[in-house]
Design a protein around this nucleic acid. Structure first.
Length: 729
RNA sequence: GCGCCCGUAGCUCAGUGGUAGAGCGCUUCGUUGACAUCGAAGAGGCCCGAAGUUCAAUCCUUCGCGGGCGCACCA
């Protein structure tokens, strides 16, 4: 037996214990004892290679580790598969920022060189997070680390693309899409963040054109006033719309207006979608640069006139005086011109939300662009069915509403991106058509001129587009296990059992994994989805790196130890509620570890070096009976709560039992009992029994200290605690 | 606008149809061999407001107020 120091020092224990786990091989399911038969799998939500571990990751990793460790002790063949995501736009942006420090842009060095730089960056920093997971004590299988740009993973992505393409679910079309001018790429709706901003509502007069047809009466009105937050887009207006029920305008529908500045005639049309109450009830319609207007335009077969280009400047369509101007400049210019013409009725201050890029915060423009889309109707139905049937369950259940809401209103998914870092779309065009392809106006309509597949004919060149990062993330549980190859791992570990993640990617990621799994492998990728708490500041605000309100879990580990950090995180994870972060609970965790340490010292001192091989205590005294009874209850309740994924509750129970029942009461009683020769032996066995069983129950929560204490317990024939039998079964 | 979550001790949060609990903090006492990262004792709460259901509500229902979040095409 080894002497225990009078205080617990995490620094002396953690790294040493982690190495023991790694060396034991038990992190890899293939090396687990033969009793561990039935597979149990979690694939970690792959963090972006750009990131470092934040407090939310730490909570999530701890939750998954608790589940995995418990299952491993219960005798499952557990696989917790680690990995990282290439995170297309995010990563490219980070590396571009690095370039900028040298005064370079990506265009200066070119595509190949940029991609090379990103790979270098990945080699250097990409494993940061994985090492931080280790520090936390995560019992992941390091022999199976995956990356979404691994060679095999790229094959999986292509296979998925071909599958959808052959099924006719993938198509290319010119549509009005979200465009980030800084990233120079399209974005899906989910990649936007709306932020409120102060702006104006401009009220502009559009003069009515006198009508020569006798059937249509000319009226007293000389103009219609439209209200807009974006005066510059008027240059691309192709109609003005009013609600058909609006009495003010009913008689004007069908008449023409003269679009100021451009001096084009545009019709007045009627559309149900127009709110009578808002503004003047008359809306300028710019099909090229507004998603709603694009819908209206389609319904009324309006021409689409592009006035804003992908570079964020006005196109020739905007007319001579505005061509080449930035959007903001053009706005000023247009307002100025309108004022000259005396066509501004009034300007009112107005607050509204503006879409911004979720990666770089640039204002998003809607504009027509040739992109690849994935048809969503059929896939969305499958995804909904998986949850409706109960094959996949959300915990807490309320989150399924977010899921259904999105799937019920789904639009086709824009899967192509114009960035450089990512999975190239496996589509090839004949070389002589390259120019045409880059120019959306002359899209190749003839399908036979496109090659989709693995071995393109000579003189064909691959498309420059890459896939949305989430297209590959959607394959995570499949591709990491070897799909589409029928590997042993795929057979053993797919479908997985649990997915634990943050609520903000329920649709971005979770729903897409579900339909991908069902569509491509015929099985839902997991059974239970845990949506864990979001950690906010004590004041209830979002943590933010730039505001310095974030918390680095590594600092906590450094200060209090990994077990205390895990304890603090889980202590606060109650009922799926958001956590208003309070560090004192980590301090409580540190104190608890020390209590555990010292109570173990006590038991060892009382029991001496004698090794037990059979800890079957009897209940001889009232104190004995009491402690055994409350222990049974604590064990049962803790187990129940872990199974319901209510980890905070489970931890509270174990804490209360251990400190207040075992230490405060039983240990105190045992001091007297060990003075009585008749019961001294049984008391010692009972002490050792409760201690060792408690260590097992607490191991998933605070793995390092429990493994360390287990090591010094005088018990015969023991393996590492990480594979000891779970007591509550 | 619609929806979701929350409002209990100074702080972070549990909890129950029969007038409340933990951790941290605070006060007083205590260094008897597990632990002062401790032990003992204690102060501290019209359980957001109003109405309703009930013998009885902090807990159920409705409506407010306050805080947070998500969704939405309000130009």
């Amino acid at each position: 037996m080894r002497e225990l120091a009078p205080q617990y020092d995490p620094k002396e224990v953690e790294d040493k214990i982690y190495k023991i786990w790694e060396k034991s091989g038990y992190l890899n399911p293939d090396n687990l004892p033969s009793k561990n038969k039935k597979p149990f799998t979690i694939t970690v939500p792959p963090p972006n290679i750009t990131g470092s571990l934040h407090i939310g990751h730490a909570l999530n990793a701890t939750i998954q580790d608790i589940i995995i460790r418990k299952k491993r002790m219960e005798g499952f063949k557990t696989l917790w598969l680690p990995g990282t995501d290439h995170a297309g736009i995010a990563t490219q942006n980070v590396v571009e920022k690095e370039l900028k420090k040298e005064g370079l842009t990506r265009h200066d060095i070119g595509k190949d060189k940029l991609i090379e730089k990103i790979w270098q960056w990945k080699e250097k920093y990409g494993d940061t997070i994985l090492n931080q997971f280790k520090k936390l004590g995560s019992s992941m299988d390091w022999s199976r680390v995956r990356f979404t740009m691994d060679k095999e993973y790229q094959e999986a992505v292509k296979t998925a693309f071909f599958h959808y393409y052959e099924k006719g679910l993938i198509y290319r079309a010119e549509r009005v899409i979200n465009w980030c001018q800084r990233c120079a790429t399209s974005l899906s709706d989910l990649e936007l963040e709306y932020k409120e901003a102060d702006s104006n509502l401009w009220f502009i007069k559009y003069p009515l054109v006198k009508n020569s047809e006798p059937k249509i009466q000319n009226t007293k009105e000389e103009y219609i006033i439209v209200a807009t937050t974006r005066p510059e887009t008027m240059l691309g207006d192709t109609a003005v719309a009013v609600n058909p029920k609006d009495e003010r305008y009913k008689h004007l529908v069908g008449r023409n207006l003269l679009l100021p500045i451009q001096n084009r005639e545009i019709p007045i049309i009627a559309d149900e979608k127009i709110e009578i109450e808002f503004g003047t009830g008359a809306v300028k319609v710019t099909p090229a640069h507004d998603l709603l207007d694009a819908d209206i335009g389609e319904r009324h077969k309006l021409p689409i006139l592009k006035v804003i280009g992908q570079n964020g400047r006005m196109t020739d369509g905007a007319g001579k005086i505005c061509e080449g101007l930035k959007i903001s400049e053009c706005r000023k210019k247009v307002v100025e011109e309108l004022q000259k013409l005396n066509l501004i009725d009034k300007i009112e201050p107005y607050k509204h939300s503006i879409a911004r890029c979720y990666r770089c915060n640039t204002i998003i423009e809607a504009l027509p662009s040739m992109q690849w889309f994935l048809k969503m109707d059929e896939l969305a139905k499958k995804a909904m069915e998986s949850v409706k049937s109960g094959k996949v369950k959300f915990h807490p259940k309320r989150w399924e509403k977010i899921y259904f809401d999105w799937l019920n209103n789904i639009k086709d998914w824009t899967i192509s991106r114009q960035i450089w870092w990512g999975h190239r779309i496996p589509v090839f065009y004949p070389n002589e058509k390259q120019e045409k392809i880059r120019n959306p106006k002359s899209e190749i309509r003839n399908k036979s001129e496109i090659y989709v597949g693995n071995s393109p004919p000579k003189n064909y060149t691959q498309s420059d587009d890459v896939l949305d990062t989430w297209f590959s993330s959607a394959l995570w549980p499949l591709a990491t296990l070897g799909w589409p190859d029928k590997t042993e791992d795929l057979k053993n570990f797919y479908p997985t059992q649990v997915l634990s993640t943050a609520r903000d990617i329920i649709n971005l990621w979770v729903s897409r994994m579900i339909f991908s799994g069902v569509e491509l492998a015929g099985k839902e990728p997991f059974e239970d989805i845990i949506i864990h708490a979001t950690i906010l500041t004590k004041e209830g605000k979002r943590m933010s790196k730039s505001l310095g309100t974030g918390i680095d879990p590594m600092d906590l580990i450094e200060k209090y130890g990994a077990d205390a950090t895990r304890f603090g995180l889980i202590w606060q994870q109650m009922g799926g509620q958001d956590i208003h972060w309070a560090e004192e609970h980590v301090i409580a965790g540190k104190k608890f570890c020390n209590k555990l340490w010292n109570s173990t010292r006590f038991v060892l001192m009382r029991n001496g070096e004698k090794e037990h091989d059979n800890l079957k205590p009897k209940a001889l005294t009232d104190a004995d009976k009491h402690i055994l009874a409350v222990f049974e209850k604590a064990k049962k309740d803790a187990n129940k709560y872990i199974e319901k994924y209510e980890f905070g509750q489970a931890l509270h129970i174990l804490y209360d039992f251990y400190w207040h029942e075992f230490c405060d009461i039983y240990i105190e009683n045992s001091k007297k009992q060990t003075e009585n020769d008749k019961i001294i032996e049984n008391t010692r066995i009972l002490l050792a029994h409760i201690l060792s069983e408690s260590l097992k129950l607490m191991h998933p929560f605070i793995p390092y200290i429990t493994e360390q204490l287990w090591e010094v317990l005088p018990i015969k024939k023991k393996d590492l605690l990480i594979v000891e039998g779970w007591p509550a079964k």
